[in-house]
């Protein structure tokens, strides 16, 4: 916990984050490059799906990140809620758009993958449906921040939305899986299908690591950006008006 406490101070955060951001970006680009190389040129085509399977290396890590970002958002929200620390609120706020983009990427690539597999751009596959609902949860969270001017209040209320969403995600997931099993037979995406070969795992994990570290770099950049925006806003407010004072006769 000591590390987090150290980081919690915005100035100290800035000191650590400033060099960290380009370093993480570089690592993410290298890992992503290597991952893409293996994914596109140095891994086998699937015996059923052919080269289409290569979408997996972009799609699956994006789906992981979609859920991971929501968890980061919910835990940051809980931390901001309990310790009332502004950096936790900022982290929750800026994670949302990043998570929404990963979610959109997962949906988009899932749809691209679905076209040759199902013959349609969309199928009400259990996973796609869950991810679609997750996407709307992200949009609702972002909408709350957009609608409330008072940042402190917005942080608390958005935290409630994030936490309520988070505790509901397993229920939604369970219900959608259940619903899907009522309506259609096992789909291509179902687990326990053909086991993945080691040569496919390598690019998959490289891409996963690239996404994860890339997320770290984006998160740091977004937090720095938000802190800067808030500092500017505070400056303009201080120039605006001072608090009233009181005296009693």
């Amino acid at each position: 916990m000591g590390v987090f406490y150290e980081l919690a101070n915005p100035e100290r955060f800035e000191r650590i984050a400033k060099p960290l951001q380009p370093a993480l970006t570089a690592i993410a680009v290298l890992l992503g490059g290597a991952g893409l190389y293996y994914a596109l040129f140095n891994s086998p085509a699937d015996y059923q799906q052919g080269d289409t399977v290569r979408i997996m290396y972009v799609h699956v890590p994006a789906a992981w990140m979609a859920l991971f970002c929501y968890s980061v958002m919910a835990f940051s929200s809980a931390a901001g809620f309990i310790w009332k620390h502004p950096l936790a609120d900022v982290s929750a706020k800026v994670t949302a758009p990043i998570g929404a983009v990963f979610t959109a990427l997962a949906l988009f690539t899932g749809s691209l993958w679905g076209k040759p597999m199902w013959g349609a751009w969309w199928a009400w596959d259990a996973r796609l449906t869950s991810v679609l609902i997750l996407f709307f949860l992200y949009l609702g969270y972002i909408a709350i921040w957009e609608s409330i001017d008072d940042k402190a209040r917005a942080a608390r209320l958005a935290a409630i939305v994030a936490i309520v969403g988070f505790v509901n995600i397993p229920i939604i997931k369970f219900s959608v899986d259940w619903w899907n099993s009522l309506h259609q037979p096992a789909s291509v995406f179902r687990d326990g299908g053909p086991t993945i070969d080691g040569s496919m795992l390598r690019p998959l994990f490289l891409m996963g690591a690239a996404y994860m570290i890339g997320f770290g770099a984006m998160l740091i950049a977004a937090i720095r950006n938000e802190l800067m925006a808030r500092r500017l806003q505070r400056l303009s407010e201080v120039a605006g008006r001072k608090a009233s004072t009181v005296n009693v006769e």
């Binding site: 605006g240 008006r241 001072k242």
Partner: peptide, 10 residues
């Protein structure tokens, strides 16, 4: 008694 609140312009 009266408690007077003084608004302060910057």
């Amino acid at each position: 008694r009266t408690l007077t609140v003084h608004a302060r312009a910057a």
